[in-house]
Simulated scan of single mutants.
Amino acid sequence: MRVYSGIQPTGRKHLGNYLGAIRHYVTGQEQAWATGDEAIFCVVDLHATTVAYDPAELRDRTYDTVAILLAAGLDPAKSILYRQGDVPEVPELTWLLTSVTAHGDLNRMHQFKEKSAQQRELVSAGLFLYPVLMAADVLAFRADRVPVGDDQRQHIELMRDIAERFNTRFGGEGREILRVPEGVYPTVAARIMDLQQPEKKMSTSSGSIEGTVYVLDEPKAVEKKLKRAVTDSANPPEIRRGPDKAGVSNLIDILAATTDRTPDEVEADLAGARGYGDLKVAAADAVNALLAPIRERYADLRGDEAAIESALAIGAEKARAIAAPVLAEAREAMGVGPRA
């Protein structure tokens, strides 16, 4: 069994990134290590070039992201952690996969529609082909399972279609050149919302600074943001979840996810609370307790970029050892290049 996950290096990593993805990476790594399976994690710097960006900032954010992943518990001795741009087999496979990817499918991708609408000067071909590169990321490693956010379901379905179409066209009967992966979607802490706009998902790019808790925020900043979180004007205050209580529901979900409890347990524990202030203080304390050791380890790791590069080089070597034979088989099946 092989599990694959990728993370964007753009933007500052926030609480939603940690609870919805990074924490699950570490859990998945430990499970894979215990069972003899394989976990692969990629910082997708090539994906980040599909929209306008600053090259120096991209490299810095990549180092930031790797340092956070290591600080959170990813261990290059237990899993494969690499930078996308260090594995040239993936972009070559991307080009080969375009031969079995329908233009209409790409044109219907929600992410392309949303991001292209934001581009004023240039909508790049890279943005259009983003889902094919994402497919190549996974298919190059013959991954079995791909943990992603719920908003990535459309990409996973396209990835599966591409693999099946490739196998049908070039593999012949019964030959699986590219493994058809399964998407794995989180059921807990899948959506942490903006503290100031609780109807919107917490986001570095489209959220509010005051409503976004960053992994590297100082404890006082975390406390301030959570104490100012939007709730409602119910009198007396009601600490419960519900469609009419978006802000309170978000705080309950955050407290539950950061203390390994269910939202129902949080509601029961706070049944005698004096008001929303108790909920906010409890959430701030729990978030700070969760993030404090990560911030501390990050501070030790981030200053040594040579060590980060060394870890990425080791990961790239392992990644290429897996991807190269897959690419070679795909090339042979398509009649590209010399005979194997």
Rank of each mutant, 00 (worst) to 15 (best):
V180D: 11
V180L: 07
P181F: 09
P181K: 05
E182Y: 06
E182M: 00
Y185L: 12
P186W: 04
P186K: 01
P186T: 02
P186L: 06
T187N: 01
T187R: 12
T187V: 12
V188R: 13
V188E: 14
A189D: 00
A189R: 05
A190D: 08
R191V: 06
R191K: 15
R191Q: 10
I192E: 00
I192T: 08
M193F: 08
D194F: 08
Q196S: 10
Q196W: 01
Q196D: 13
P198N: 04
E199P: 07
K200G: 05
K201Y: 03
M202D: 13
M202C: 07
S203A: 10
T204W: 12
T204G: 14
T204V: 11
S205A: 14
S206Y: 14
S206Q: 15
G207H: 04
S208C: 09
I209V: 14
I209Y: 10
T212C: 01
T212H: 00
T212I: 12
T212K: 05
V213D: 02
V215P: 02
L216R: 01
L216F: 10
D217E: 07
D217G: 01
E218I: 04
E218M: 07
P219A: 07
P219N: 06
K220S: 15
K220A: 15
A221T: 15
E223A: 13
E223D: 12
K225G: 06
L226I: 15
L226G: 02
K227F: 06
V230Q: 04
V230D: 05
T231Y: 07
D232T: 00
A234V: 12
A234D: 14
A234F: 11
P236I: 09
P236M: 09
P236V: 06
P237C: 03
P237W: 03
I239W: 05
I239Q: 00
R241K: 12
R241W: 01
G242R: 03
P243D: 11
D244L: 07
D244P: 05
D244K: 09
D244T: 12
A246P: 11
A246F: 06
G247K: 02
V248E: 12
V248R: 01
S249F: 09
S249V: 04
N250H: 06
N250R: 13
N250F: 10
N250S: 07
L251G: 11
L251E: 06
I252M: 04
I252Y: 07
I252P: 02
D253K: 09
D253L: 08
